[in-house]
């Protein structure tokens, strides 16, 4: 997994899912899951309203 979602900061709003170009993210009820399609592009981390996502390249 190339991104890290801080679940204590996350407001599970799904903004990151909507901007993910590869469809690698999923908002499952109250948490975010990341699959192998993640390219670490960092768009999700940039737009997260809470600043809850970190990218590790």
């Amino acid at each position: 997994m190339a991104i890290k979602v801080n679940k204590f900061k996350c407001g599970y709003c799904g903004a990151c899912v909507g901007v993910c170009p590869t469809g690698a993210l999923e908002l499952v009820e109250t948490w975010i899951e990341v699959d192998e399609n993640c390219t670490s592009c960092g768009i999700c981390a940039r737009i997260c309203p809470m600043g809850a996502i970190e990218v590790s390249r």
Partner: peptide
């Protein structure tokens, strides 16, 4: 393709 570019969303709190 419904993916949105950063310039295509307002991020809100």
């Amino acid at each position: 393709d419904t993916s949105l570019k950063p310039a295509d969303i307002e991020t809100c709190a």
